[in-house]
């Protein structure tokens, strides 16, 4: 992950949050973003989009964030892509679980759209 962070696969089932998040990442953060409304959509789009980072909501119908991450890990093309969770479910035990699943960070909702991009870059650089 030496390259600068540019391509982000953003998965969020809530359309309003997805709109705000997408705007924050694209408009303010300057990233190239592929926004998906469900886990299945993300798993389908990821190989073609080839993101550098997957930003996942946790609580989603049908395929939640953890299942989506497992699915991405199951695909050869996406198995090594770093992932972050952005969730309102951020109890210490839950955070520990996410990190155990391979997430590099957990961002709590609600987030500040104006600083979201900067925070992602900081984390990207820290994780290196």
């Amino acid at each position: 992950m030496e390259a600068l962070l540019e391509r982000i696969l953003y998965v969020e089932d809530d359309p309003d949050i997805r709109a705000v998040g997408t705007f924050a990442l694209e408009g303010i953060g300057g990233f190239t973003v592929k926004a998906c409304g469900s886990g299945a959509e993300a798993v389908a789009a990821a190989p073609a989009f080839r993101p550098q980072l997957v930003l996942l909501d946790v609580m989603m119908p049908e395929m939640d964030g953890l299942a989506t991450l497992r699915a991405l890990r199951g695909l050869k093309a996406t198995a090594a892509i770093p992932a972050m969770f952005m969730t309102a479910k951020a109890q210490p035990k839950e955070i520990a679980l996410y990190l155990e699943m391979g997430a590099i960070e957990v961002i709590q909702k609600p987030f500040d759209p104006m600083t979201l991009g900067a925070n992602l870059r900081t984390i990207w650089e820290r994780v290196g």
């Binding site: 809530d14 309003d16 949050i17 709109a19 705000v20 998040g21 705007f23 924050a24 408009g27 303010i28 609580m59 969730t87 309102a88 479910k89 909702k109 609600p110 987030f111 500040d112 759209p113 104006m114």
Partner: peptide, 23 residues
């Protein structure tokens, strides 16, 4: 509940932040 309350709050706070931020 935490999730369900925070989800709309996330939209509101995010949207407001973007607008107030001049985006």
């Amino acid at each position: 509940v935490s999730h369900e309350l925070r989800t709309p709050l996330t939209s509101i706070r995010g949207a407001l932040g973007l607008v107030v931020g001049g985006t």
